[in-house]
Computed example of a mutant assay.
Amino acid sequence: LNVIYETVIKGKSLSQGLAASNKFSEYEFYCIQVGEESNRLVEVLDELIIYYADQSAMKKQITSVMSYPLFVLVITIGLVYFMMTSVVPMFADVFKQFGSELPSLTLKVIYLSENFPKFFIIFISVGGGLFFLCRSQREQIWFRKYTSMLILKVPTVGNIVKIIYLGRMTQSLHLLLSAKTPLIKSLELTHKLVKFYPIQLAINQIQIDIKKGKTMYEGMSNFEIFPKRMLSLIKVGEQVNQLETMMGKLSNQYSTELKYQTTIIGKIMEPLILLIIGGIVGVILVAMYMPMFNLSNIMTQ
């Protein structure tokens, strides 16, 4: 704020102050610049308020849905580690005194218990390796291409990721077009903001098609990432010269759809995770008690 203040005091514009601070993206800088040049700065700032409020709400919604499963996952790993390293070895020592043949499930659980520290180290090593691979290669084209393809193929998760980035794209275009930014420039800035490979690839080609005289609808229709409903509204928006209005409607639709999808997933995941935890613990306990049941049956006979 001090840098922006000093820049403006020297007679420069607010957008130049933003650029001088090196704390704002080109997207934000250009939106403010367009607002100043078109004498619509107040309207642009109002749109930016809505934009960042929606982005913040979206992040909170996703965080609230993912926090519970992640917490339960950590608890589950700790619980399994405790049972495999403490509870199962205690039962295994008792079983050795029986001298009888153990059920297949019990033998498998005991084998896992005896080798669990080794398997756990391998698991942590593989997880750490994948984490560092993602961190080091996340900006590489090949990595972004294949990871985005993989994510989109995952049921439910792929659809949510798609909704998130389509919502971000339409909201960005609505803000820029409402500020009377040229369509090509709006797409260029949106390309920098929406860091999802399939959409960035599509935007690059759409810009080329528009320069050749095609409409935005014609350029977008060549890519499967854009749903038919979205294409239909954009086609109508271009025909009636209300493209920014249609982008705003699409943005609101995707925001509503995301809230609905994340709420449904949150309600489904809670009992599903409890069933998974119960299943894991149940299998271990059944494996440990089966030899005792067999022994009691032999004694009664």
Score class of each variant (00 low, 15 high):
residue 5 Y to S: 11
residue 13 S to Y: 04
residue 15 S to T: 04
residue 21 S to H: 00
residue 21 S to M: 01
residue 36 E to P: 05
residue 38 S to P: 01
residue 42 V to A: 14
residue 46 D to R: 09
residue 46 D to I: 04
residue 53 A to S: 15
residue 63 T to K: 12
residue 65 V to E: 00
residue 75 I to D: 01
residue 90 M to D: 03
residue 93 D to T: 01
residue 102 L to T: 01
residue 102 L to D: 00
residue 109 V to D: 00
residue 110 I to Q: 00
residue 113 S to I: 01
residue 113 S to N: 02
residue 120 F to W: 07
residue 123 F to Y: 11
residue 128 G to L: 15
residue 129 G to A: 15
residue 132 F to L: 13
residue 134 C to V: 09
residue 136 S to R: 15
residue 145 K to L: 10
residue 145 K to R: 13
residue 149 M to V: 10
residue 165 Y to M: 04
residue 166 L to N: 05
residue 169 M to F: 15
residue 172 S to M: 00
residue 181 T to S: 13
residue 181 T to D: 04
residue 182 P to L: 15
residue 183 L to E: 08
residue 185 K to G: 14
residue 187 L to G: 08
residue 197 Y to G: 03
residue 204 N to P: 00
residue 204 N to F: 02
residue 204 N to H: 04
residue 209 D to Q: 13
residue 211 K to V: 05
residue 212 K to V: 07
residue 217 Y to R: 13
residue 226 F to W: 13
residue 229 R to H: 10
residue 232 S to K: 11
residue 238 E to F: 01
residue 239 Q to G: 06
residue 239 Q to N: 12
residue 242 Q to G: 07
residue 255 S to C: 12
residue 256 T to K: 14
residue 261 Q to V: 06
residue 271 P to M: 03
residue 279 G to I: 10
residue 279 G to L: 11
residue 286 V to G: 06
residue 287 A to M: 06
residue 288 M to R: 04
residue 295 L to F: 06
